[in-house]
Nucleic acid binder design. Structure first.
Length: 953
RNA sequence: GCGGGGGUCGCAUAGUCUGGCCAAUUGCGUCGGACUCAAAAUCCGAUCCUUAGUGGUACGUGGGUUCGAAUCCCUCCCCCCGCACCA
């Protein structure tokens, strides 16, 4: 039977037996595991598969630990990407349509994809298919999609937001967004022709007071106002004069529109030539002294106001502009400027930037050899370097008044707020870079009023959430630092959008709840999803959700909904049975948003006994060490992988790809060979069922202990979700031991052979469930292996292990010697074991050893020498010296324990004589050094306990 | 820059918390051998240097602590994740 037929055979059996349809069971401990639902704008890929495999392995492992396991799954459709993509299909956009074609969709199907609904139907179906073929142990009855397309879930989210509002977790404010003026709409990354990743950036717009108007200049560095010496304008440009509020401002032509979008009341009055401004004087903010307007070539009308405040001490542009003017009397004359006055302008030191000094801009310009202000590239770099450097290292000088001595990072906020307070500046936004919408318009920043925020910055809420985090299990534990940091660092989250699929805000249907905010407590919904999904819309009342998930009255809910009271009670019990969830598994990128949001919302919505119990995070799947991407051609969907390799191979290789926070690395070459390894296991089981000898052999004890030991370690690893370690131990290492065992005994003992097959089959069942089921049935078992106990084992008996280690070590040493001596066919091999007196000496040394295992040589010699036979006294002294000075340091602190065990080297090696002689095809002699033949005495003197001397000829 | 995680024998990974039993796990690759007419598969052995074995060098760089460091401390270099309206 090929692997695919085998896999679907077992999937069908599981489905028929409904083993994954989880129901509460009194008296059985539950385990609820889940992972974030995928976004439904495409097929599931290798990256999804990794996280979902982890969830599935945990789920199956816990099942084998006799837990009642719930593993549900759902589909995320909230947000703009689906809507945007559907819109593109509607508009007949080529790239979008060819992307769908590449997914293998037919033309007629693609036509339907102009409606978002089609996406939310098609891809979930495909995802279910992929995950079923993958062998996922999911309770599919509880699945659903998000958004208003699914009324029960929609009502659940509405209930959640009503609760959040009622309990003051939502606050209102304003928020800057990227805006397309042509389409009059917010522009997300998915709606851009260019400028992906660009965001609104906050500037401080400084106001320079003139006789009857203001010049305005935007800056990212308000703390540098103390160093202002002049103002720059484009002398050849044209500016606009406009009424802003009650004041008259002069600014770039583009700016009035931007100001309007940012909530200002603007009325344009007319044009002003830049040249008319040159030479005028205005009062600069904060320093309240007059500064002169000067011409420059670097003023950019598309950013800010097209007017720039000049701080030559800390801005390379400003410094160079000034130098250029000061070195050209003719230019000054042309602009009608007083050359002597211009020459008298000097940079004013305002901050100490450490290694760059107190006048960093002049210094940097000199260092870089900048000649004039037209060297844009060099100046741009200088600006970038200086900006970062000062921000991180700068300390404000004493002359800077109320921020003296403060780091730049702090001073910036303080100065900005002070200027705003005094009416000398306002907050103003620009984009971090140009953005073009797919409606071919240049985008700008718009301030959205009435924006709702989830108040994650709220200190009380944060404190409660930190408490919840403290009680959680984290896998790996070292991710805790990151979580702790994020909880502190999270700001209020703008949780509603103007467009996209989703749930409408209950009290204002012009807003849609955004995708990260409608997915924070839905794990609770899973517990009763299969009931709620069957209800009529008018039954989905607030009182029902209160009764199920909150403190609501079940009788009241029953009356309002006409749902039998007993049903509501039983649903409520089911929620109480499963919740809280035990583990949520996701990629590490979700620590800083989704997982933390989820924790916040749990503390807001539920009592502490319903707070999450565990998070597991993992890295991003790499393919052959590279990031998976469509452009690199190493992008794999679950569908194609399932088809190409079969589920168990994908599971096996993905599991082996990595664990912990590191990025797992999936290797194609391993996937190519892994199928054989699994098939080999099945044939091994088939061939060896019921086989084995019934007589006993000395090495049987060893193998029994090894199996217990490996099982023990694998169990420990699995408890920590380290399934790769567990698989390596059971599937690879244990089979190495088995090979050795067969080598040693010729034929394994029947009972141990059956144990061996049972342990591995059960141990790999969470990882490769289909292969394991098949193996289990080949072993003659009727029940599913998925409900068998996971191997637990115990710590090994070290005496037994040590004896066999001696044989292994001796074999390795013998091989090494034969190899080095270049002897292919030895005639005789002699193992010369250490004499009794050496053992006695070593044990005595062990008794004399201190806490660190150290032994004083003098003390040892005087204690041991009397009992060493006369003829060996000289040898004895040498041996003791070597033992104390060389061997002990390399053996480690607890070396005594090893040597205090009962090991009879002579009899162990003698019992292995046949093994060695078969292997080397020669005579094997084991002899005690005391009885060594004369030619071997010298060799025999080299023997140590557990390290026999070896003589080959 | 900030916060977090890393850099290990051709590649990839374990070991680091709790220093010594670590020349260091496992997979892949490579080389040699067995089987075969041959190949694939499978099995056995080898895979830092040196050597009739217990030696030398080595876990990003440079220092330090220690009898002893892949493991602890400090410097520097490099890589990955996140830094928000994107799901």
């Amino acid at each position: 039977m090929n692997s695919k037929a085998l896999e679907s055979k077992w999937q069908k059996k599981w489905e028929e037996a409904k083993v994954f349809e989880s129901e509460p069971k009194d008296g059985q401990e539950k385990y609820f595991v889940n992972c974030p639902y995928p976004y439904m704008n495409g097929y599931l890929h290798l990256g999804h598969a990794f996280t979902y495999l982890r969830a599935d392995m945990v789920s199956r492992y816990q099942r084998m630990k006799d837990k009642n396991v719930l593993f549900p799954f759902a589909f995320h459709c909230t947000g703009t990407p689906i809507v945007a993509a559907a819109q593109r299909v509607k508009e007949g956009e080529k790239t979008q349509i060819s992307a769908l074609k590449q997914m293998g969709l037919s033309d007629s199907l693609i036509k339907k994809f102009s409606e978002p609904e089609e996406w939310t139907k098609y891809f979930p179906d495909k995802a279910i298919e992929d995950l079923k073929i993958f062998g996922s142990s999911i309770d599919w009855r509880r699945s659903f999609i998000t958004t208003s397309l699914n009324p029960p879930y929609d009502r659940f989210i509405r209930w959640q937001f009503n609760q959040l509002l009622k309990n003051d977790y939502l606050i209102k404010g304003s928020f800057p967004v990227v805006w397309c003026p042509k389409r009059e709409t917010v522009v997300g990354d998915h709606d851009r022709l260019s400028g992906e990743g660009e965001t609104p950036q906050e500037y401080t717009l400084l106001k320079f007071k003139g006789d009857d108007d203001y010049l305005v200049a935007a800056t990212l560095r308000p703390e540098t106002v103390f160093g202002q010496t002049n103002i720059w304008v484009d002398g050849n440009g044209t500016y606009t004069k406009a009424k802003v509020g009650d004041e008259t401002w002069i600014m770039s032509k583009e700016m009035p529109f931007k100001l309007t979008l940012q909530g200002h009341n603007v009325k344009e009055l007319g044009e002003v030539n830049g040249s008319d401004l040159v030479g005028k004087k205005y009062i600069a903010p904060q320093i309240n002294s007059e500064v002169i307007v000067l011409p420059s070539k670097f003023c950019d009308a598309s950013i800010g106001s097209g007017i720039v405040t000049s701080v030559p001490s800390d801005s390379p542009d400003d410094f160079q502009g000034l130098i250029d003017l000061q070195s050209s009397e003719s230019d000054c004359k042309e602009w009608g400027l007083d050359y002597d006055f211009i020459k008298s302008i000097e940079p004013i030191a305002i901050l100490d930037s450490g290694e760059m000094g107190t006048l960093p801009a002049p210094q940097l310009c000199k260092e870089l050899g900048i000649k004039d202000q037209t060297q844009r590239k060099k100046l741009e770099k200088a600006k970038q370097d200086l900006y970062m450097h000062s921000f991180n290292n700068g300390i404000m000088l004493d002359s800077t008044d109320f921020v003296a001595g403060k780091p730049v990072e702090e001073a910036r906020e303080i100065v900005k707020n002070k200027l705003i307070e005094k009416g000398q500046a306002v907050v103003y936004y620009e984009l971090t870079g140009p953005v073009q919408s797919r409606w071919l318009a240049d985008c700008v920043v718009k301030i959205v009023d009435n924006q709702w925020f989830l108040a994650y910055a709220n200190e009380d809420w944060t404190a409660t959430t930190e408490k919840a985090l403290k009680q959680m299990n984290l896998y790996p534990e070292k991710s805790r630092n990151q979580f702790e940091y994020v909880l502190q660092w999270l700001k209020n989250w703008a949780c509603v959008r103007e467009k996209g699929l989703g749930t409408k805000l209950p009290w204002d249907d012009s807003w849609v709840i955004e995708s990260l905010s409608d997915s924070t407590i839905y794990m609770a919904y899973y517990t009763v999803a299969h009931y709620l999904q069957e209800l009529e819309e008018d039954q989905l009342t607030e009182s029902l959700f209160d009764a199920l998930f909150g403190a609501g009255n079940t009788k009241l809910a029953s009356e309002e909904t006409n749902i039998p009271h007993a049903d509501i009670l039983s649903w409520r019990n089911e929620f109480n049975y499963w919740y809280p969830y035990d583990l949520r598994i996701s990629g590490k990128d979700l620590i800083q948003n989704h997982l933390s949001f989820s924790l916040f919302n749990h503390t807001a919505m539920f009592d502490s006994d319903k707070w999450p119990k565990g998070f597991a995070v993992n890295g991003w799947v790499l393919v052959e060490g590279e990031k998976m991407s469509k452009s690199k051609g190493n992008f794999f969907t679950m569908k194609e992988l399932n088809e190409k390799y079969g589920a168990d191979v994908v599971r096996f290789t993905l599991c082996n790809a990595g664990e912990g926070l590191d990025d797992p690395n999936w290797e194609i070459s391993f996937a190519e060979t892994a199928g054989k390894k699994l098939a080999n296991w099945l044939s091994f089981v088939k061939e060896n069922k019921g086989k084995g000898r019934t007589t006993s052999h000395p090495v049987d004890d060893w193998f029994r202990e090894v199996m217990a030991d490996v099982s023990y370690k694998a169990h420990q690893a699995s408890e920590r979700l380290r399934f790769r370690t567990s698989t390596r131990l059971l599937f690879f290492e244990l089979s190495q031991y088995f090979k050795w065992y067969v080598q040693r005994t010729g034929e394994p003992h029947a009972e141990l052979l059956q144990d061996y097959m049972s342990i591995i089959t059960r141990g790999i069942a969470p990882i490769v469930p289909h292969t394991a089921e098949e193996a289990w049935s080949l072993l003659g078992e009727k029940a599913f292996v998925l409900s068998q106990p996971f191997p637990q084992g115990h710590k090994a008996n070290s005496d037994v292990i040590l004896g066999e280690d001696l044989v292994k070590q001796t074999l390795e040493d013998t091989r090494a010697i034969l190899n080095l001596a270049k002897i292919d066919k030895p005639e005789e091999i002699v193992f010369i074991v250490a004499p009794k007196w050496k053992w006695d000496a070593v044990r005595t040394a062990g008794e004399l050893a201190d806490g660190r295992g150290q032994v004083k040589l003098n003390q040892l010699i005087s204690t041991v020498m009397p009992s060493i036979p006369n003829e060996s006294k000289k040898l004895g002294a040498e041996f003791l010296k070597r033992w104390v000075l060389k061997d002990i340091p390399s053996l480690g602190p607890d070396w005594q324990k090893t040597y205090s065990q009962k090991v009879d080297e002579e009899s162990i090696l003698t019992a292995s004589q046949e093994f060695f002689s078969n292997l080397f095809d020669c005579k094997i002699t084991v002899v005690n050094a005391d009885n060594a033949r004369s030619i071997m005495v010298a060799k025999g003197n080299q023997s140590s306990p557990l390290k026999p001397a070896i003589f080959v000829s």
